[in-house]
Design a protein around this nucleic acid. Structure first.
Lengths: 304, 304
DNA sequence: TATGCTATTCCTGAAAATGGAATAAATGGG
DNA sequence: CCCATTTATTCCATTTTCAGGAATAGCATA
């Protein structure tokens, strides 16, 4: 048996055409198909829709009534595909996730022109420093530093993210600026807690060397707070470029151990791969891609 | 790609269930099917309906909106099959065709009790002495004397229809009652015109013998008029039993040549075979079948 | 850390739909 | 008056599609 949808659709065409042959040509199918569909529908309904003879067909009184309802239901159903497919301009929700530090600094200025150009776009920002999937479930676009392992995301590296060991000039004046990794151990240091597992991130250096401070002067789980502490002269910290850059430029922070710098990480933009990408998401995605890639657009610089 | 109907139906279930697995069990299909349907629908729409990861799904804002419309369209569509299938009591049109002579005499009295019992039944009587298909196109039940050749009808013989050669007593008193077929030629006779081809029906006799009157006293195309003419003493006529019977009984007509009587024809009831038979048509069909078959129900007799 | 569960992809056997050829009957023209 | 043409229909073989089992990936929970 054919599926009900097609049965009804064929019936409606036949009712309008007045002949099975005409209906067949209109639908681009064979006349047998029309016969079959109508027969199936009649069996399903327990009522005849057409009176027939070998030469012509003529719609039943019942069929005429039925055609009205069928046409209406069919139209209703088709709007599910038509009116929803045509997006009436770019509008709707776009869920974006990013680490707090990046989101606060860059997302708003980057998105502002887009919001002005497309007032019906609704941005839903979920600033999280970790990739928690429960939250990401409502995410259309994500920004992360590091590697996107999940292959169900399509990810793209936008910019390198160097890490600097920094402190404020006054602290450096008090202590001896370190020349080697060993010298670090004697200085007040900060460590960042990985929210995922509650463990401290090790400091990273060239050639894959890592260093775990024994007695850190500061432990916290927020990079921005870590930055504040270094600015306040509390400690030395290993800070990503996008946080340190403006302060290095203004002289509020000074970088040390530059020749032990680790290989920079990457800033990634990503989005769920499965399913199609709507116009509005594509728009925001491309815009952010360009904004984060183009050094001229970074008011405060982002590495390199 | 699946058909749209199923796609939307599966999506609605998934939206309500909140999990593809649950949706699959509710629908009695496999989880793969749910995945496939949702993916197809998303491709069709150009929008994601669910945010997913390997472990769970979560409906999109767009998906939530869409589910409302989809559910509504689905319900609308399903009423096409539900509300139309359940016949709210026996009601609606029943098209019946019969020869004039039979229709006038029997159909109304036979149908009267049915009309009283089912006030919503609408009888559409089309009295025609020939099987013209253009008219029959709107016929649910037919009554005919003779053979139903068309195999797309299901026909059933109800009663034999003998033919009598009759005249009124006064005419028989004037002329010599015929003892053989040859004697007929000298008498005033009537012939009936076959409306189908405009030709006279030959008189029929035993062993397949036929007789075509050369100079008929009356030519007409209506059996009832032919009967009137014989009652008025205008001519001898070969009249079917259901017309002649009451007058034979009352003595207004007398039968002759009884030993040359042809094999009786049959009274048939028939209905279109294709498509299902609705309850109301079945009811009327069965009722008429019984009414025409049961001799006790014939107030005026119908042969044998 | 290990186990279980869920979504997903791939693949193969099974089911269904599709259209060609043939049949039946009615219409229209020579 | 008969024959060719047209239309609905049935039968059948081919092709397409569908459906679920097995396997994979990744998240969640104990």
């Amino acid at each position: 048996m054919l599926n009900r949808m097609e049965m009804v659709r064929i019936f409606c065409t036949a009712a309008e055409a007045g002949s099975f042959r005409e209906a067949a040509t209109r639908l681009g199918i064979s006349p047998q198909g029309v016969t079959r569909a109508i027969q199936a529908l009649e069996t399903e309904l327990g009522e005849s829709l057409f009176h027939r003879n070998t030469r012509q067909v003529s719609i039943t009184a019942f069929g005429q009534d039925y055609a009205k309802d069928a046409r209406s239901a069919l139209d209703h159903f088709d709007t599910l595909f038509r009116s929803h497919r045509t997006e009436p301009e770019l509008s709707g929700r776009v869920g974006i996730t990013a680490p707090h530090a990046i989101g606060r600094r860059f997302l708003i200025p980057f998105l502002q022109p887009l919001a002005a150009a497309h007032p019906d776009l609704q941005f839903d920002l979920r600033l999280e420093d970790q990739m928690t999937d429960a939250v990401e479930a409502h995410i259309d676009i994500g920004i992360r530093v590091g590697v996107i392992r999940d292959r169900r995301y399509v990810a793209r590296a936008l910019a390198p993210v160097p890490f600097y060991v920094v402190a404020c000039p006054s602290l450096i004046g008090q202590k001896t600026p370190p020349e080697s990794l060993d010298a670090l151990a004697k200085l007040p240091l900060s460590v960042l807690i990985d929210r995922k597992n509650g463990r401290p991130w090790p400091w990273l250096f060239a050639d894959g060397q890592t260093f775990a401070p024994r007695q850190p002067a500061l432990i916290c789980d927020d990079p921005d707070t870590e930055l504040e502490a270094t600015l306040a002269g509390m400690c030395f910290g290993q800070i990503p470029a996008y946080l340190a850059e403006p302060h290095l430029r203004s002289g509020k922070l000074v970088a040390v151990l530059a020749d032990h710098a680790p290989a920079p990480w990457d800033l990634f933009i990503y989005r769920p791969q499965q399913g199609p990408v709507s116009k509005r998401v594509r728009l925001v995605y491309d815009h952010l891609k360009q904004a984060f890639s183009n050094p001229k657009l970074f008011p405060q610089g982002l590495g390199t």
